[in-house]
Structure formats: structure tokens, C-alpha cells
């Protein structure tokens, strides 16, 4: 088997086993209602994680994701509730500003040769600070367009509901997978993560690809912010603190190598679902502190990092032996 497939398979197997064990304990977990909520509750995280997958595949990191989600929520709420914009116009504005923001970070990463960690850390403070300057409070959004979106629901047999935002996340994953695995841009992203020197000698437009990657990540973070605003019907500057770390966890648990070059968008989807499962399990149990979520995520992350090391170290040895 292709060695980059192995972490993906491992994630899928672990998810299947964990889900099966949870169902044995709480049969109620196996219902369309729970599955539908899985998608809805994790929609914003999933969308942000797709962007993060591209960034990590290219060998970078984006710490500004959570802050961009928070900023977008506030921006959209302000434009709708205070300035009276139509939500669609506010969304367009949010996506455009995120594109510019991500593009600038990409330019800094490429042309200033500053590590992505530092550039996006600065971006994180800027976006979070910007959101808090606009308002310190939660701004409620009430608009008939929001009500209409919330009413777009596909009812499933067994009482489950597929929401618009849940389906949007699935759609983003499908498009993300196509872009990553079946377009030239996708192949350039993998090339950068594999070896950026080789990539540029092979004619990969390194600058354009780097800028594109961070632009994509920020735009998807803004889309996640829009989804979060639809989900909570409010904008709050301290919303989604630390979501970038959840997104990174989902990407790594999904089998993408943190140093770039190897991984699948589908893996990230399973990673997000696995995180969602842990949370749902703890809610079902009812007695466990919600902080157990963090402990489980920490353990899973560690497990996957060790697993990846073993897989890649083993195949390197294998090559030398042959």
C-alpha cells in the first residue's frame, strides 16, 4: 500500500472502532439525529480545517484561523445589524477582506522569508484585536435571511436533520478534495510541501502558490465565520478562540504530515468527525468534565504523530535494505 495512505486508513479504522464502542455503550448514538448534528455542530470547524489542510500540505501553518472566524462574525454582525446591509453583501465583504488578509500573509511568508508560524501569529493578533476594537460585546443578528437559511433543512427518517451549513461543509470537503488531488494548483501545493527548492526548479510558481494557499485558508476561515454566525445568530469578538488548534489537530489526526507533502482532504474530514465523536460521547455520558475532550484529543494527536514517525521511518529503512 502507498505509504501516505496508511495514516488515512489508520484514522478511518480508529474512527470506526471508537464509534462502534460508543454505540455499544450508548445505542442512542447510532441515529440519523446524532449524525445530522455531527455535521451541523462541526460545520465551521470542518470548513476551517479544509483550508488548514492546504496550508499544512504546503509545509506551512496558519494560526490566524480562529481569529479570522471571530473577526468575520463581528464584521458580518456589524454590517447587518448596525449598517443595515443585506447578509449576502456582508458575506461578500467578509470573504473579500479575508482574501486580502490571507494574500498579504502569503506575500509576507514568501517574499520576506519569515516563517509562516510568525506571520500568521501576527495575523492572529491583528484579526482578534481588530474584532475587539469594533466591539467588546456580542452583537445579535436577526434578519429574515438568517431565518430562511435555518429553515433549509432536509429531514431524514429517524428524526435526523441535515442543515444547510452541514451540507455546505460536506460540499467544501468535496470541492477541497478535487482541488487538492485533481488540479495543477493541488499538485503545486504538494510539491511545495515536499521540497520547495525542487519545486521551483521544476517550474512550480512558488510565489503564486504560497499566496494562493494562505488566501484560500483565510477565505475558508471567513466562510467558517459566516457559518458560525448563522449557527449562533450573533457576532462575538472572542468567538472561536483556539479553533486554529482544533483545526490543526483534525488535519494531523486525519493523517496529514505536519511537515507537509503527504495527506488527504478526506482524512481531515474523518479527523473532524473523530473530534466531534469525542465531544458527543462526553455529552452523552453526562458525568465527565468537558475538559476530557482536550485530553482525548491530546492523546489522539500524540498517537498519530508517533504512528506517522513509525510509518515513515519504517519505509525509509525498507528502501535502504532493498
Amino acid at each position: 500500500m502507498n505509504r501516505s495512505l496508511r495514516p488515512l486508513v489508520a484514522t478511518a479504522v480508529i474512527f470506526a472502532i471508537a464509534y462502534a464502542l460508543s454505540i455499544l455503550q450508548f445505542p442512542g448514538l447510532f441515529s440519523t439525529r446524532v449524525l445530522g448534528n455531527f455535521l451541523t455542530d462541526n460545520a465551521f470547524l470542518g470548513i476551517a480545517a479544509v483550508g488548514m489542510t492546504f496550508v499544512i500540505l504546503s509545509g506551512g501553518i496558519d494560526l490566524s484561523v480562529g481569529a479570522v472566524i471571530g473577526f468575520t462574525g463581528v464584521l458580518v454582525a456589524v454590517l447587518i445589524s448596525w449598517a443595515g446591509w443585506h447578509p449576502l453583501a456582508a458575506f461578500a465583504m467578509a470573504l473579500a477582506s479575508a482574501a486580502a488578509f490571507g494574500g498579504l500573509m502569503g506575500l509576507a511568508v514568501h517574499y520576506l522569508q519569515v516563517p509562516a508560524f510568525i506571520v500568521t501569529l501576527a495575523g492572529m493578533f491583528l484579526a482578534r484585536g481588530g474584532a475587539s476594537v469594533i466591539t467588546r460585546d456580542s452583537i445579535p443578528v436577526s434578519h429574515e435571511f438568517y431565518d430562511w437559511i435555518s429553515s433549509l433543512i432536509i429531514r431524514l427518517p429517524g428524526g435526523g436533520r441535515l442543515s444547510f451549513i452541514g451540507l455546505l461543509m460536506v460540499a467544501i470537503f468535496v470541492v477541497g478534495a478535487l482541488v487538492a488531488h485533481r488540479t495543477k494548483f493541488g499538485s503545486y501545493v504538494y510539491a511545495l510541501g515536499g521540497n520547495s527548492v525542487s519545486a521551483s526548479l521544476m517550474g512550480v510558481p512558488v510565489a503564486r502558490t504560497t499566496v494562493g494557499v494562505y488566501m484560500l485558508s483565510s477565505m475558508l476561515a471567513a466562510l467558517a465565520g459566516i457559518v458560525f454566525s448563522l449557527y449562533t445568530s450573533a457576532g462575538y469578538p472572542l468567538a472561536a478562540v483556539g479553533v486554529e488548534l482544533d483545526a490543526i489537530s483534525a488535519v494531523v489526526i486525519g493523517g496529514t504530515l505536519l511537515t507537509g507533502g503527504y495527506g488527504f482532504v478526506l482524512g481531515t474530514f474523518i479527523g473532524v468527525m473523530l473530534l466531534g465523536l469525542v465531544q458527543t460521547y462526553i455529552i452523552f455520558d453526562g458525568t465527565l468534565s468537558s475538559w476530557w475532550t482536550k485530553i482525548v484529543i491530546g492523546a489522539l494527536l500524540f498517537l498519530f504523530i508517533v504512528l506517522q514517525r513509525l510509518i515513515f521511518a519504517a519505509s525509509v529503512r525498507g528502501e535502504k535494505a532493498s
Partner: peptide, 19 residues
């Protein structure tokens, strides 16, 4: 100077893939 993380075919065609 190729990409060990990608397939042989992609290394041959990167940037010029048939689409």
C-alpha cells in the same frame, strides 16, 4: 531535484499535466 513525496507520473508531468 524531484519530489520524492509524489508519484513517478506526477514528477514527469508536474506543471504540464494533461487536464
Amino acid at each position: 531535484n524531484l519530489l520524492p513525496n509524489r508519484s513517478v507520473a506526477e514528477n514527469l508531468f508536474l506543471g504540464h499535466q494533461p487536464t
